Simulated assay, not measured.
Amino acid sequence: MASKPEVKDLLEAGVHFGHLTRKWNPNMAPYIYMERNGIHVINLYKTVAKLDEAKEALKKIASSGRKILFVATKKQAKDIVADKVSKVNMPYITERWPGGMLTNFVTIRKAVKKMAAIDRMKKDGTFNTLSKKERLQVDRLRAKLEKNLGSIADMTRLPGAIFIVDTMREHIAVKEAQKLNIPIFAMVDTNSDPRPIDYVIPANDDAGKSIEAILGEVTSAVAEGLADRKNDKQEEKAEAKETAEAPQEEVVAAVEEAPAKEEETITEVETVVEETPVEVVEEPKEAPAVAKAEVEDLTKIEGIGPKAAEALSNQGINTYAILAKTDAEKIKEILTEASSRMAHLDPTSWGKQAQMAADGKWDELKEWQDKAKGGVE
Score class of each variant (00 low, 15 high):
38 G>S: 13
281 V>E: 13
295 V>E: 15
94 T>D: 07
28 M>S: 05
296 E>L: 07
375 G>R: 04
128 N>G: 09
238 A>K: 15
200 V>S: 14
15 V>R: 04
260 A>R: 15
255 V>A: 13
186 A>F: 04
209 K>N: 10
97 W>A: 05
176 E>T: 06
121 M>C: 00
220 S>W: 03
272 V>E: 15
66 R>W: 11
359 D>Y: 12
143 A>C: 07
346 D>M: 07
264 E>M: 13
247 P>M: 02
111 A>D: 12
93 I>P: 12
298 L>W: 02
185 F>A: 08
219 T>Y: 01
69 L>W: 08
105 F>I: 05
89 N>G: 07
248 Q>K: 12
355 Q>F: 07
12 E>F: 08
203 A>W: 00
62 A>M: 02
22 R>Y: 11
88 V>C: 03
166 D>M: 03
42 I>N: 02
179 K>I: 10
101 M>Q: 06
315 Q>G: 00
273 V>H: 05
260 A>W: 10
241 K>W: 07
12 E>W: 11
364 E>S: 11
193 D>T: 10
330 K>H: 12
255 V>D: 14
140 R>V: 00
242 E>M: 11
96 R>M: 11
98 P>E: 04
127 F>E: 03
76 Q>N: 10
93 I>C: 14
297 D>I: 01
298 L>P: 00
365 L>K: 11
300 K>E: 09
142 R>Q: 15
285 K>F: 13
54 A>N: 03
183 P>N: 07
194 P>A: 00
204 N>A: 03
302 E>G: 08
57 A>W: 14
99 G>Y: 12
150 G>T: 09
57 A>Y: 15
176 E>L: 02
46 K>Y: 04
14 G>M: 02
321 A>E: 13
204 N>P: 01
218 V>I: 15
38 G>F: 11
218 V>H: 09
374 G>H: 00
115 M>I: 06
336 T>P: 05
19 H>W: 03
127 F>G: 00
14 G>C: 08
114 K>Q: 10
